[in-house]
């Protein structure tokens, strides 16, 4: 077990995730549907999950959200809780499907599930903050958007993992 290598790769994934997080902020998806995002950062969570199992992917997710919010300056604000809730719910469901139905769903399907539940988690937390059921009006739009972005994220993850050198994949 090459512990150093694992730490380095997780660090790398968090770094890439942060960049994606920031790049995403430049694309004004929210102008089309309030709250909409591309979900690019999910790529690194998914890769983390595949390479290092549940715990490894969770580390990538939590570190990315924590550092991301510190960099953008939303740490412990509502935006932070929204990201955390969406990220965790999406990740938990992805793991569940990945381990239980691995041979039924490809990474694309798992990524779509992650994207859908990410939105569901976010909106549910937003509902508890705002206490207005009307917020769910946007859910179908968000989920519909999550399908193509989820497919995209799944494809990228799939290709990335396919082209990674053997020793990286086996280092877990």
């Amino acid at each position: 077990m090459l512990r150093t290598r694992k730490i380095a790769i997780i660090g790398l994934l968090v770094g890439i995730g942060l960049i994606m997080h920031i790049v995403e902020g430049m694309i004004p998806m929210a102008a089309i549907i309030p709250g909409a995002k591309l979900g690019l950062a999910n790529i690194v969570n998914l890769i983390g999950l595949v390479l290092f199992g549940f715990a490894g992917g969770l580390q990538v997710l939590l570190l990315r959200i924590l550092l991301g919010s510190l960099i953008i300056g939303t740490f412990l604000t509502y935006n932070f809780y929204l990201s955390l809730a969406g990220g965790l719910l999406g990740y938990l469901l992805m793991s569940l499907f990945y381990y239980r139905f691995h041979y039924r769903f490809s990474l694309i399907g798992i990524s779509v599930i992650g994207a859908v539940f990410h939105n569901l988690g976010q909106i549910t937390v937003a509902y508890f903050i705002i206490a207005n059921i009307g917020i769910y009006y946007y859910l179908p739009y968000l989920i519909l958007l999550a399908v193509p972005t989820g497919i995209g994220v799944g494809l990228v993850s799939m290709f990335t993992i396919n082209y990674l050198p053997e020793e990286v994949v086996n280092s877990a």
Binding site: P34, G35, Y78, N79, L82, A126, I130, N132, I135, Y137
Partner: peptide, 11 residues
């Protein structure tokens, strides 16, 4: 459709 301001808790 609703207008939702999560940070300011206004809808």
């Amino acid at each position: 459709p609703s207008i939702i301001c999560v940070p300011n808790q206004i809808s």
